[in-house]
Structure formats: structure tokens, C-alpha cells
């Protein structure tokens, strides 16, 4: 059993690095790359046919209007504005820096913060936690903007 998990862990890591290289343009760097690799590993462990995250699926998620969460926040765009490259505003009036990595290069550099905001905002907008697939797609989309 333990042998199996070591082997499977290694295989996952290789897959993750491979997948990360696959999606990463020059804009995706450092910490964000690591995070995407982690999500890749997570998705791959459940879905062997996984071929990588999609910026297009991330875009659809960002602009979708699930309205399954809290009534004041039906969509990501409720607070983050209608474009990843423009500033948003919290419901309390604070400015939110653009989501696109190109506009806010230091945005995805802290894993604790990233986990916090995915936890909070997925609950607020979707009414549930996001899957690793959704998070990976979302970050991939933001990395290419």
C-alpha cells in the first residue's frame, strides 16, 4: 500500500509538472505555477484522462451567473467588474485591483490568501466550495489575461 502511494505520488508529480509546462506562458510564474501544478495533481488523481486546464472554461466561469450562492453576489463580476483587467469594487466600496495577472502581478503570490479567497468567494457566489478543476481553470484564465 505504501509502495503504491509513493509510486502514484511520483507519477502525479511528473504529470503535474508536465501539465504546468503545458499551460504556462511566460506570464505564469513562480507561485502561481506551483499552485496550478498542485491543482493539476489533484484533478489528475481523480480523472486520468485530464489534459490540462482551459483558459476558456475559466473565462466562462468568471462571466457566468450561477446565482446559487448568496443573493448579493450572483457572479464573480458582481464585485470584480465586467473585465479581468479593470478594477472592481467591494460591496462596501473598497477598490479591488484587477484580477488579471498582467495588471496585478503580485496577486497570486500567497497560497494562504489564495485559499482564503477561493473558500470565501466560491461560497458567496456558488454556494459551495470550488473544485480543483474550477480553480485551475480560473487561475489559467487570469494568467493569460
Amino acid at each position: 500500500m505504501s509502495t503504491f502511494s509513493i509510486v502514484s505520488g511520483r507519477r502525479l508529480l511528473i504529470a503535474a509538472v508536465f501539465a504546468a509546462c503545458f499551460v504556462s506562458g511566460p506570464a505564469v510564474a513562480g507561485m502561481l505555477q506551483d499552485t496550478i501544478a498542485r491543482y493539476t495533481a489533484e484533478v489528475t488523481s481523480a480523472d486520468k484522462g485530464f489534459t490540462g486546464f482551459s483558459a476558456e472554461r475559466g473565462r466562462m466561469l468568471f462571466f457566468s451567473r450561477p446565482a446559487t450562492g448568496k443573493p448579493d453576489t450572483p457572479s464573480c463580476t458582481s464585485c470584480h467588474s465586467d473585465s479581468p483587467v479593470t478594477v472592481g469594487q467591494t460591496r462596501a466600496g473598497k477598490e479591488i485591483a484587477p484580477m488579471a495577472l498582467s495588471r496585478t502581478p503580485d496577486r497570486y503570490t500567497e497560497s494562504k490568501k489564495l485559499a482564503k479567497w477561493f473558500r470565501r468567494n466560491c461560497k458567496s457566489v456558488l454556494g459551495r466550495v470550488c473544485t480543483a478543476m474550477e480553480k485551475g481553470d480560473f487561475l489559467t484564465f487570469m494568467a493569460t489575461q
Binding site: 448568496k70 443573493p71 448579493d72 453576489t73 460591496r91 482564503k116 473558500r119 470565501r120 468567494n121 461560497k123 458567496s124
Partner: peptide
């Protein structure tokens, strides 16, 4: 904080 004025603000 899980339901903080209509948003999840958990810490």
C-alpha cells in the same frame, strides 16, 4: 463571519 452581511468572510 461565515455570513457577514451577505458574504462569506470566514477566517
Amino acid at each position: 463571519l461565515e455570513n457577514h452581511y451577505g458574504e462569506d468572510a470566514s477566517l
